[in-house]
Each structure stands twice: as structure tokens, then as C-alpha cells.
Design a protein around this nucleic acid. Structure first.
Lengths: 142, 142
DNA sequence: AATAGTGCAACAGCAATTGTTACGTATGAT
DNA sequence: ATCATACGTAACAATTGCTGTTGCACTATT
């Protein structure tokens, strides 16, 4: 796995689930397929569970499945569930800036970034998991 | 300085320059004011120079200044000059994916991200450096 | 010549993410 | 009941990207 791969892992897994919703998958299966570690999978999918996109069950014959129809899960849901923000404030200074130019800047730039973040989420909410699922999918034929 | 501070540093510096365009600033001056290192400043401003936003001169009484009027420099210019991509493909896998679902996903998701990237740049291009410069700026009174 | 700058490369330090191990807990199978 | 299986979580190692720092070459002004 590479950097910032949480979104990739989440989408990949959701897409597979969309193609075969009844199958329950263990984190080991998923990790195997995605080339990563079960713990990493549980970390990422745990966020999706908190957001109500997935459900998990412990114990024998437990595992992960979609918590609602794939068509009702949008890219925005996934994006927000992972607490990822492409457009971050980029200013984590300790306390208020000493420089008046910097202070004014932060306010103005934050406004623009906020706008952009909103339009990004809006756009993401227009695409569902089924929309990004390949129409010709060899896994769906199983 | 904190993480992903290149954009902050660039905007901060450009904003100062917009307020007093004739003044030539050394990377040491700028670093001092921004609380960072001259080499870091040259790294970041070097990108802006490559993009034609700034010019630099070597030797005695050298330094940095705007290469064109501040009102003609937009946030998009800065964003693009720094090679920053808020919306990154998030897929740096080695070679083509083995999994057909993954392959289809990458294509579709890339399309959406591309759209978003374009609208982001479009929005950024509507705001110039002078727009984010504070109207009441103590430095402009010098 | 001396001085004051940029340009660049190499390396150290730091922070965030990912990978891994270990252990607790819950649940179904036997 | 007991066992096997799978999630949940904490702790730590490994990796990676960015920032900070030092050093030196090169250039232009004085």
C-alpha cells in the first residue's frame, strides 16, 4: 500500500461489495485482496461502519457487509466518513499570527477554501458506489 | 513552520510584496519574517519564479520582487506553480492493477477528481493576490 | 578584491501514515 | 462447555514526505 491509500482501500472494498452484496467478507480476505494488513482494513472500514455505511459482526462466520444499498452510498459519504479533507486550512500555527497580513490572509483564504470544500462534497455526492463500479466486472459473475 | 506550509509561505510573501511592490526582499528577510529558513524560502519562491510570478536577482543588492502586477496574480497561479494537487489520484500503485474492479475504479474516480480539480482551479483563478490582501494593512502604510 | 546575494545538493530531524504484533472480547460451531 | 474464528484496540516498528540546516559554487554590486 502507498500513502493516503485509505480512500483507495475504502472504494475498492465498497465496489467489490456492491458487486456481490450478500457475501460476508473477513478483514483477512479483504486485506489479502488489497495487498495490505487485516488491521489496516479494520481501521479504515471501522470509520465506514461509524458512518453507517458498513456493518461488521464478530465471531465465527462474522465479517463485513454493506449496511445499506450500494446505490445509496455516495463518494461524499466515503470521503466524509474517512475524515479526509483534500482542502485543508493549511494553517496550524500556534495561536494567532503576529503579522497582520498573515491574519487577514488566513481569513480570506479560509473563506475560499471553505467554498471549494463545499462544492467538492456536493460533486462527490452526485456519484454513488454503483456509478464507479465497472460495468463489465468479472467478480460480479461469480 | 508546519506541514504543507508552502502555500501559506507563498501567499504570505506575495501578499506583502503586493503591498509594497518596489521593495526588493532577500530570502533572509522573508525567512525572518515568516519564521523559517532562507533555503526554504528560495525553494518555494523558486517555483513561483519558474511560473513567472516572481523574479530574483543574484549578487549584491539582489533579491526577490514581483514579476508582474499583483492584481494579475491569482490564487490559481500560485497553486499551480507549487505543483500542489489537493485532489490527487491517490493511486500510486506499481504498474497496472491486477484486479479488474480496481482498474475500473481508478478510471472512473480519476474522471471525477479531474472534474473537481478543474472547478477548483477555476474558482481559485477568480481571486487575485490583491483580493486576499487585508484592506487595513499596517505594512502598506510604511 | 570584498561583500552580499541566489542556486543547489546533501543530509538530519520531525510528523504522519502504514505495517505488524499482541491480546482482549464476542459469537457461532462442535 | 469448549474451541475456533473474527472483530476491536493498543502499542510499537518501518516507511515516507516535508521541513530545517549546512556547505559550497556562482554572480553581481560596491
Amino acid at each position: 500500500m502507498k500513502r493516503n491509500s485509505r480512500l483507495s482501500l475504502a472504494l475498492h472494498t465498497l465496489s467489490h461489495m456492491a458487486g456481490d452484496p450478500d457475501r460476508v467478507r473477513t478483514s483477512a480476505d479483504i486485506a489479502d485482496h488489497a495487498g495490505t494488513n487485516p488491521v489496516v482494513v479494520r481501521r479504515v472500514l471501522g470509520k465506514l461502519r461509524q458512518a453507517g455505511l458498513l456493518s461488521s459482526e464478530k465471531g465465527h462466520s462474522g465479517g463485513w457487509r454493506l449496511a445499506k444499498p450500494a446505490k445509496d452510498i455516495t463518494l461524499a459519504d466515503v470521503y466524509l466518513a474517512l475524515d479526509e479533507r483534500f482542502v485543508s486550512g493549511a494553517s496550524d500555527d500556534a495561536g494567532p499570527p503576529q503579522c497582520s497580513v498573515e491574519a487577514g490572509l488566513q481569513t480570506r483564504v479560509a473563506e475560499v477554501l471553505q467554498e471549494i470544500e463545499e462544492s467538492l462534497v456536493k460533486r462527490l455526492s452526485e456519484t454513488s458506489i454503483t456509478d464507479v463500479h465497472p460495468s463489465s466486472c468479472s467478480y460480479c459473475d461469480n
